[in-house]
Structures are given as C-alpha cells and as structure tokens.
C-alpha cells in the first residue's frame, strides 16, 4: 500500500486561516450533532451522528475545491458541514421544515446541497458509490478537472456497489477519491466478523489502484492523503482508495432505545479512542505550533455554539411544508 512521504505533505502549505477553518468545521460538526442529539424528544426518524469522526471528514473535504463533487451515506450531517454548508438549513431539515436543505423531503439521512457539490447522502449503504463514479465520468466527458469525493463506511466495503464502483473507476481512470470511513462497526457488528481484511485499503490491489491507510483521527494526515489523491485524479491518473481509521463515540443511531445494543463494545475501548479525540489532538497541535491560542479556541467554540443555537432557533421558527405541496419536486 502507498504511504505518503514527508515531501508530499500538502498540509505543509496550509496557511493559518486554513488551519483555523479546519478546526472551525470540526467544531461545527461536533456541536451541531451534539445539539441535534439533545433534541431527540422533538424530532422524528433516525439520526446517525459522526461525533468522533470529524477529522477524517474535514481533512478530506478541505482537500477538495468548492466545485468538486461529494457523495455520502447515512452518517450524513458531517459531510455537508465539512463541505462548508450553512447550519441553519441543515438543522431545519432535521426539523422537517420547508426552509430545510431539502424542504423537509429528505430528513437526516437524505441531505444534499448541490450548490456546494454535495450530490446527496443515502439511507442505503453503498448506494451512492456508483453515482460518485458517474460524477467523475461526467467531469471527464465535460472536460473539467472536477473530482468526486466518495465517502462510505467499512460496512459498504462488503457490498456489491463498492466492488463495481472501484472497478469502473479504475478501468476508466476516473477522478474519484474513495474515502472509507472505517469506524470499526457495521451497526453493532465488529469489522473482524464481517470483513476479510483488516485494512480495507488492501482491496485497492484487486482493482489495480493505490490504496492508502490514514490515521482518521489526525485531520492533517487525512488532508495529506486526500490532497495527494486529488492531485492524481486531476492529472488524469485515476482513482485512489483511502481508508481512514476512525471511531464513533455515539451509538449507531441516536433515537430509539430499541435500536441500541449495549454490550457490543467495551467502555474501555470507547475510552481509549476518546484519548485520541480528533478535535483535542488538532487543538493541541495548533497551540503547540502557535497557530492558535487557547483563548482563540474558546472564542471559536463559543462562536460555533452561537451559530448552532441560531440554527435551532431558525429551524424551530420556520414554517412546516404545506400539505398541498406533497407532490412538489417529484418531477421536473
């Protein structure tokens, strides 16, 4: 498997503002999701949070351009936030309001923000991987240098679309970055019981493309890997499979006690991962390198908290969709 060497570390060229923006987006994901989870008594449906996985999301999203494409999955809020989408319409979507990102038709699992290149999240595991290949094909056929960042989980690596997508992108040399967010569990089942390999990136060999393992709790490490893959993709060298080893602190999904399986992982395991919290790691790094002071971090956190509260107020005070508009958006 490919390793990123020091000389290829694109994060060395990031300026102070870019570092701060990375932290801001990580905080926005965490505080948005923690607040959304706190609203469980007021919201319906399912909500799959990614608290603990912020580094791999933001590291990847910061390595692509605003006009690049992105697809996601059911663990869905982090991706659009990582791509820079505003929090208010995102929160309003969780409330099912007309002002929501998808006007209340999609909800938590089916977010999209086409203006930000987000082609959708999906309630079906692996389902958007072929769609991501198509976005890459479209870039090729239209003669642009846009790439598509395709997020998927370790669970998706065992379903057919994963294999069909890697093969198609490989034979056609398409600009797709397959980013496996390996949090170790497909629902409640550990990867060791579901998957033939420990490193999913190894499967890249089968498709004759580079496979890279990244420390998913280190935002700059993920950024470096994705930036290298993006450079490859833009220059016509084809797709890359990147596996970010990460962890979700939260349960598979937030709502519904009946869906929680209490004994599928140990408290010690969760505690061990919390010791390598991606936000804390990055804050310490930034302070250590004097790119940010502790006070500035707290300021930023307070500002993001205010933004999240503003999003809740916006969502709460927004109008619900009109029942008469049930059929709207079905056909063009």
């Amino acid at each position: 498997m490919t390793r990123i060497t020091d000389s290829k570390r694109a994060s060395r060229d990031l300026n102070v503002d870019q570092h701060r923006e990375m932290l801001r987006r990580m905080l926005r994901i965490r505080l948005f999701e923690e607040r959304a989870a706190s609203l469980r008594s007021r919201l319906v449906g399912a909500m799959h949070n990614s608290v603990g996985q912020e580094a791999e999301i933001v590291g990847a999203c910061m390595a692509v351009r605003d006009d690049d494409y992105m697809t996601g999955n059911h663990r869905s809020h982090g991706h659009p936030i990582g791509k820079g989408v505003a929090l208010a319409p995102l929160m309003a979507e969780l409330f099912g309001k007309q002002t929501g990102l998808c006007h209340g038709r999609g909800g938590s699992m089916h977010l999209a923000a086409f203006s930000a290149g987000s082609l959708g999240e999906s309630g079906i595991v692996g389902s958007l991987m072929p769609v991501a290949v198509g976005a890459g094909l479209s870039s090729r056929l239209r003669g642009t240098d846009q790439v598509c960042l395709c997020f998927f989980g370790d669970g998706a690596a065992n379903c057919g679309p994963f294999h069909e997508s890697l093969n198609l992108a490989a034979i056609w040399g398409l600009p797709v970055i397959f980013l496996c967010e390996n949090n170790g569990y497909a629902l409640f089942t550990p990867q060791t019981r579901t998957t033939s390999v420990i490193d999913i990136a190894k499967r890249a060999c089968a498709y004759n493309i580079p496979g890279v393992v990244a420390d998913g709790q280190d935002v700059l490490a993920v950024y470096d890997c994705v930036a290298a893959a993006v450079a490859r993709a833009r220059s016509g060298e084809g797709p890359t499979l990147i596996e970010a080893k990460t962890y979700r602190y939260c349960e598979h999904q937030e709502f519904g006690e009946e869906f929680q399986a209490p004994r599928y992982r140990s408290e010690a395991e969760v505690a061990a991962w919390r010791k390598r919290d991606p936000i804390e790691l990055f804050v310490n790094d930034l302070i250590g390198r004097a790119l940010l002071s502790r006070a500035e971090v707290e300021q930023m956190r307070a500002a993001v908290e205010a933004e999240v509260e503003g999003a809740v107020v916006f969502a709460d005070s927004s109008a619900v969709p009109e029942p008469d508009a049930l059929m709207e958006y079905l056909y063009c």
């Binding site: 998808c102 038709r105 086409f114 959708g120 056909y331």
Partner: peptide, 8 residues
C-alpha cells in the same frame, strides 16, 4: 429529485 427538494 424529490428527496433533495428539487435540487436534483
């Protein structure tokens, strides 16, 4: 198209 509120 429907899920994404007419964006797609």
């Amino acid at each position: 198209r429907y899920m994404f509120g007419g964006q797609a």
